[in-house]
Design a protein around this nucleic acid. Sequence first.
DNA 1: TCATTACTGAACATTTTGTTCGATTTAATT
DNA 2: AATTAAATCGAACAAAATGTTCAGTAATGA
Lengths: 200, 200
Amino acid sequence: MKSNEYDRRVWKTRQAIHDALSSLMEEKKYSKITIQEIIDRANVGRSTFYSHFATKDELLFSSVEDLLEILNQYIKSYIEHDEENPRLISVVDFFEHIQENSKIMKGLLKSEGGDLFFEKVEAYWNDGIEEYLQSKLPKGKAPKVPIKILSNHISSTLLSLLKWWVKNDMSYTPIQMDQYFRDLIDPCIDSVVSNHSTMD
Amino acid sequence: MKSNEYDRRVWKTRQAIHDALSSLMEEKKYSKITIQEIIDRANVGRSTFYSHFATKDELLFSSVEDLLEILNQYIKSYIEHDEENPRLISVVDFFEHIQENSKIMKGLLKSEGGDLFFEKVEAYWNDGIEEYLQSKLPKGKAPKVPIKILSNHISSTLLSLLKWWVKNDMSYTPIQMDQYFRDLIDPCIDSVVSNHSTMD
DNA sequence: TCATTACTGAACATTTTGTTCGATTTAATT
DNA sequence: AATTAAATCGAACAAAATGTTCAGTAATGA
């Protein structure tokens, strides 16, 4: 018996399909890409594609799964690594990682498929950030802005910064982007956590 | 000769098609809606559809054209109505208008088609806000955060507030949403315009 | 080597898109 | 009310894309 998971053929085929999608996404919007084009470029049979992925969306999610996991980890560590300072910490390494995956990011930005991806990212961040804010909320003191709105604002700000940055050819350094993120967000967080220290 | 623009039939057909799309968008994602379904529900012939709209996207844009125009107008007046106070003014009436069009807004949020719409909205706002910020920028004094990033942040914040609000069944009043918007954004604007007045 | 598994590719059914065109209905105008 | 131009209908097409099936071939792990 073989364990199909480790069959070289499987790996090669999936890789070829992922690469085909990735390269097609540099050229056109996800919604305009057909499965036909994918299998042509990947050089695999029609039935082969369907034996791996049921739909185009499934392929997309499989393609960005790793990236999604990594981005989520950044935010997770970013939120948890927080003993001494009540503010959210650095997103420098986050932006650095985006930089390393700029190709797929650009592809995602062009497509409506990307929106599905970014929604997932944002939802995940949102949960983590809300949990963080809840834990930092002084008891008995209602925040100026509801926690749910604030966490939504923080995650959407990070995401919109990310999108803007990629769309504008990453013309600032990750360190600068981190600073801008803090400039935009820190005052809002100050209104929740009591510690009003001026930073920098 | 007839002037087709004012032919009742034209108006009725287009209305039926728009309504069909609108009602379908309440049920399923835009990308999953077929032209077949639209013409079935609208009760118009296939050729009739194509005599009005070349593609499904064209129909969508036509459907939200009015809404788009109105939203743009709000932001325009919102930016220009700005003699005494250096901050952006009220978005209360903006949220009120969203409330009145909640049906179509909810449909837009469900769909990737909506993303196309929201991108347009955001791009338009962004231009106006950037222009506004440029005009308010004290000469010779560089802002903490680049104007382009800041204007992007403001428009994306308004949009994400709007999305959050609609998704959460508009559980706050437009007045509250206006206040939250200011709470989130005013500190950022303060870093650009010199006038540091505490508000409210 | 050998059994197993994955891939091929062609054939097929289905769905959706988009076009065409003559017949029919509808509305504006006189 | 009659005329006339335009809009709609609907059926018939062609084309493209999706998704399934299956027998034959190739590659792999043991």
